[in-house]
Amino acid sequence: MIRLRLYTTLGCHLCEQQESLLAVLLCGEYHLEKIEISEDEALMERYGVRIPVLADEAGEELDRGFEPPLLAAWLAERGWLDEAAWQSLRRQMGGEAGPREVKSAVMRGGRRYLG
């Protein structure tokens, strides 16, 4: 069984988006431990502006896993990607376009602004 940790906080819509993507893209059984960062000062310091952060058992972390291409690549590196689900999701997203190529979105200073 794949064991993952998700550093999150209550009401984080990006965390919810990452959980949904994970359920679609991860092949096999997994256990997701949600770690509430607001209850620990050290976790707030480390993850406060980075959540959601997904970590595997080795402690390797993924920031911005709510972006499908990033999550898919991270899962593929570990042999955990459901390739058929990823191909289906890519078709739904409009082919090869990643989140930074979405029409009516503008990248400024590393952030995406919807127009």
Rank of each mutant, 00 (worst) to 15 (best):
R3N: 04
L21C: 02
L22D: 03
M44C: 11
S104M: 07
G98W: 12
Q87L: 13
P99F: 11
Y30M: 08
H31L: 12
R90S: 14
W80K: 11
A84N: 11
V53P: 01
A58S: 15
L71C: 09
Y7P: 00
C12P: 04
R78E: 12
E77D: 15
E16T: 00
P69I: 07
G110I: 01
E57I: 07
E57K: 08
R50P: 03
C15Y: 05
Q17M: 09
A42S: 10
I35P: 02
E33Q: 14
G94L: 11
R5F: 03
E77T: 08
M107R: 13
G95T: 11
A105P: 00
E67H: 15
E57L: 12
M44G: 05
V102C: 08
L62I: 08
Q92W: 15
E16A: 03
T9G: 00
E57S: 15
G94V: 10
G48W: 01
G28P: 07
D56I: 04
G11V: 01
R112V: 11
L114K: 00
E33N: 05
E60D: 14
R91E: 15
E61G: 12
A105K: 09
I51Y: 03
R111T: 06
S104E: 13
Y47E: 04
V49S: 08
W86Q: 10
E29P: 12
E45P: 01
Y7D: 02
V24N: 10
C15R: 01
L114Y: 09
S20M: 12
V102K: 09
W74C: 10
A58Y: 06
E16I: 01
A23Q: 13
A23K: 15
E67P: 07
L22G: 00
G110C: 01
G109R: 02
V49E: 10
P69V: 11
I51R: 01
P99S: 14
G48K: 00
S88C: 12
E16M: 03
E29Y: 07
G48A: 03
S20R: 13
L32M: 05
R91G: 14
R100D: 14
A58K: 12
G28T: 04
V49C: 05
M1A: 03
L89S: 13
G115E: 08
F66H: 14
T9C: 01
G98I: 10
Y30R: 06
K103E: 15
Y30V: 05
L32T: 03
L14R: 06
D40C: 05
L43E: 02
L54Q: 04
P99W: 14
K34R: 15
